[in-house]
Write a protein that binds this DNA or RNA. Structure first.
Lengths: 161, 161
DNA sequence: CTAAAATATCTGCCAAAGCAGTAAATGCCG
DNA sequence: CGGCATTTACTGCTTTGGCAGATATTTTAG
């Protein structure tokens, strides 16, 4: 039996993890979107380039599921990046349904030029954290994510049955 | 001099707090939006009702700044809720620019009926956490939020100068 | 007290996200 | 092998979010 941290009778939105996470995420976006826009990139565009650079997602499908982004919307964002010459689409040779995305030299240069900005903002966000606090924060975030991930997968399986 | 947790030369998106936060937030939304939609509410609609219930935001302005939601978009969401009879708009008597939002009886009943669902999902998310871990997680999230908050306010002041 | 600046909400317009359906490729199972 | 379901990417359509400007009210400065 797992611990019940919230109870219906006493629940207040102020104390919700969801509220805190939403707020943290929003503040992060606030800090990043304006400077990115000044350099000609939307946040989504930056994330695609950066995930390609670091090998998190190499095709649209991976990106959609990990970033929780609509597949149709993603197609159009990739169109924009391809038109500007930052990424190239290549049909996967092993599985021809898939599209392998590849950073062009220009794309790599673009994302590299944005990294200092992002690193600066991340350091700003964690400025008051000790190394131990950062480690613990990461551990807890990862724990939350994997719990939610498996919970979602099992309810999904139930829904299909 | 505050601690630099990230360095440009070694930065990888996998290790970004932003990445972890975005992911946590997305998974949370995944868990909530479908069941809410089945009961006829969008996530934003639920949050408005719930924040009204718990006194976090009582007028559109408060909601916009705390939820990072566009003021124009919010007007339309409130229109929807008002049409369905869940909230009422009343011009503020102290400041007639403001709109005081008020839950109707139907609105209160609606949000109360959704609380068990939300509490269930939050408990699911924190199922593997001890009480101490939850406390620490909250403390770190609040610390991150207040750091980001004040950082944003100061850069905003610089931009205006 | 008045003029100018600031604030809160709303409206119209445009861009982006979400949804449903399509097409091509693959995997599965008899 | 052959048919059927699944997966991946894409395309129209609708809904929503985001931005700029308009209006009404309040605050501030002189």
């Amino acid at each position: 039996m797992s611990k019940q941290h919230y109870q219906v009778s006493t629940y207040k939105a102020q104390n919700s993890v969801g509220y805190l996470l939403k707020r943290a995420h929003s503040l992060m976006l606030d800090a990043l979107e304006t400077p990115l826009a000044e350099r000609g990139f939307s946040f989504v565009q930056y994330v695609i380039l950066s995930w390609l650079r670091d090998g998190i997602a190499l095709n649209p499908k991976d990106f959609c599921s990990q970033f929780r982004h609509d597949s149709g919307a993603l197609t159009r964002v990739i169109d924009q990046l391809a038109e500007r010459g930052f990424v190239e689409r290549m049909r996967g040779d092993r599985d021809r349904r898939k599209v392998d995305l590849k950073l062009t030299d220009a794309g790599r240069a673009a994302v590299e030029s944005l990294i200092p900005l992002v690193v600066g903002k991340l350091n700003l966000a964690l400025a008051d954290f000790s190394s131990e606090e950062v480690s613990e924060f990461f551990r807890l975030l990862i724990k939350l994510n994997s719990t939610l991930q498996s919970a979602l997968e099992s309810t999904q399986a139930v829904a299909e049955a």
